[in-house]
């Protein structure tokens, strides 16, 4: 999966699950997800479970930190780094 695909997938999931009714253009690649209160800890766990399932990766408990997940751009970088290089 490339970065654009991951971004689209994460954005769609966050909008659908945690921002019902929000205009998609308001959620940018750099919107702060955790520090701006868009994802609380339970929402973060749901997002991680979704990423693991749909990207076929395993996220270690130690990796559940804001540095990896605080924006769609960071999520894409992080997920890409977890994928086996082809």
């Amino acid at each position: 999966m490339n970065a654009i695909q991951i971004r689209t997938m994460a954005r769609d999931f966050i909008l659908k699950e945690f921002l019902p009714g929000e205009r998609p253009e308001n959620l940018t690649d750099s919107t702060e997800l955790i520090t701006d209160g868009i994802l609380d800890s339970l929402a973060t766990l749901k997002l991680v479970a979704y990423l693991e399932k749909s990207c076929g990766i395993e996220i270690a408990p130690d990796e559940l930190v804001p540095e990896n997940l605080n924006s769609i751009a960071q999520i894409a970088n992080f997920v890409q780094s977890k994928q086996p290089s082809t």
Partner: peptide, 14 residues
């Protein structure tokens, strides 16, 4: 008008 949900959550977080 309704406010953006992101804006509301951000305002609460701060």
């Amino acid at each position: 008008h309704a406010l953006s949900l992101i804006e509301l959550k951000r305002f609460c977080a701060h």
